[in-house]
Design a protein around this nucleic acid. Structure first.
Lengths: 302, 302
DNA sequence: TCAAAAGTGTTCGTTTTACACCCATGT
DNA sequence: ACATGGGTGTAAAACGAACACTTTTGA
């Protein structure tokens, strides 16, 4: 342990995963593992973005009874923060984090942890649902908390302003566009000021929100999101429309179908047309695409 | 002191300042305080961006003899990181940091500090040159290191590719645009791979580079850079062309004069035309502008 | 025959880039 | 007169948003 006399150093992990929520309920025995808050879709809704959570440790946090938090742990003696992140994922979730992990920032509010001064180094990553699925539930009650879905975005837009007023919307917060107000800056709203209120314990809602904002980065401009994340959660071959949906959910905004495709397939894309046709869904059959790099494995820590 | 048994926690500060390098030499007795590297302008060059440095402590770092580093210090017992940053600025530089300070990230390479494992929390800010000027030189040899200037940018463009190939260029590194290569990501070059080689000791070149990238953010889109920085270094009333130059130096790229002005003065600007005419420079007299908020003081820590 | 999803043509307004020329000043 | 820096007109190109219509399938 590396607790010193005055402060402890901990690492907290924001681990995202994306899964088709229709398939989700069929694949899981116990759907209390998956928390949608008040945003459980009534009808099939396609992809949803989740974050991995655990119940708060009753011994450490008697006041947080029943609340859920992000997986975390102490920083070990001779570890780097990245190493600690992967170790903690392994120890607390059983998960081998072999995608890219990124530093989020240090959370150092003196009162952020009721036990005393704990510095938290937050890291984030996205993992494949098939990896995390094995560890859901069980003794440790590993679970998923909804971060975003089309259902959430639609509900939000109905109860507030249309989505184009925002620079991105998710259940853990949003930012309004800078232009309309004379302030000339983004105005952000976190869960404290959202109708649903806090979702996770401690300051972990903040961490999820900032991690989500970093995640949005993977989908800006001409960037290759798979390369950025070190992960392709869509499978080896996929439809453009699947990538479209994935992008919308992660960015928390809608993107025109036709424009998205045209931009994507413009010169120097990271996609390859496999030439195969997929007719697994209703409607006109589609071309399947794959990533130019067959392997996105992450070997280095950064 | 908060050194624990295994690791120390330190805060390092990347403090930027902008000054007209012509005025600079006239105002300073000893211009060895200001290091341009090989990029000292021969003729008047206008604004330059600098970072505040100190000589490395000979006692702590016998191997770094003669090298300069960022101001830093240990994290105190009951301080937040932001408080520590302001305290260290005061103690090591005499400076009251009353502009916005921002977290840069945690540097935790096990071998980054030859003394042993030291976690470094880097913060960055921009301060007014008139503030830092008082403390330059003297016993502590507080000095400035060039980060960017038109002279540097022009030299760089001559020796490499034209500036539009880059997403921003400065003496501590640059990023090439994502599009031309098939990689679909930004490719960055740090001082290790730049002809001049390392500039500061330890891993402080990295810190300056990442801080500079964050600084560039202040000048994107419709953002008000003064609000972002908590500082207006141009004086109460200034020319558009001064703001233009300030922006170019900080972003490390050129922006068209006419386009810059039109964009800036479009609806909902943060500038006010004072109606005054300035004829302090050759050429046609100019309108002077000021910021809509007379006061940019920062009261809260974040 | 119809709904669903994909593919594509076209329009329109805005943003960005570029170039050009004129203006008002001090020297 | 002219160099200097400021102001502005205008045009082309690129980009983004929107809309509509066609295509191809399964039910």
């Amino acid at each position: 342990m590396t607790t010193d006399i005055f402060t402890s150093s901990a690492v907290d992990l924001v681990i995202f995963t994306v899964v088709d929520s229709d398939k989700l309920s069929k694949q899981l025995w116990d759907d209390s593992l998956v928390s949608f808050g008040p945003y459980r879709p009534k009808s099939p809704e396609g992809l949803s973005l989740f974050v991995v959570t655990l119940p708060a440790d009753e011994a450490l946090y008697p006041n947080l009874h029943g609340q859920r938090v992000l997986p975390g742990g102490y920083l070990g003696k001779d570890e780097t923060l990245a190493e600690a992140s992967r170790r903690i994922a392994k120890q607390r979730l059983g998960l081998s984090l072999n995608t890219k992990i990124r530093q989020l920032g240090t959370f150092d509010e003196p009162n952020r942890d009721p036990r005393g001064r704990v510095l938290s180094f937050a890291y984030w990553a996205m993992v494949d649902f098939v990896e995390i699925r094995k560890y859901l539930g069980g003794r440790d009650q590993i679970g998923l908390e909804l971060v975003n879905s089309h259902h959430y975005m639609n509900t939000f837009a109905k109860e507030n302003f249309p989505l184009y007023h925002y620079d991105g919307v998710c259940r853990f917060g949003n930012r309004t566009m800078p232009s309309p107000s004379a302030l000339r800056g983004h105005a952000k709203t976190l869960t404290d000021h959202l109708p649903g209120g806090r979702i996770l314990g401690l300051d972990h809602d903040q961490m999820v929100f900032y991690a989500w904002r970093a995640l949005r980065h993977a989908f800006t401009g001409k960037l290759d999101p798979f390369r950025f994340l070190g992960l392709n959660p869509l499978g080896l071959e996929f439809r453009i429309s699947e990538l479209h949906e994935f992008t919308e959910i992660c960015r928390g905004e809608t993107i025109q179908r036709d424009y998205f495709k045209r931009q994507l397939l413009k010169n120097e894309t990271y996609l390859l047309n496999t030439g195969k046709t997929d007719r697994s869904r209703p409607g006109k059959p589609t071309q399947l695409y794959k990533h130019i790099n067959d392997n996105l494995d992450v070997t280095d820590t950064e």
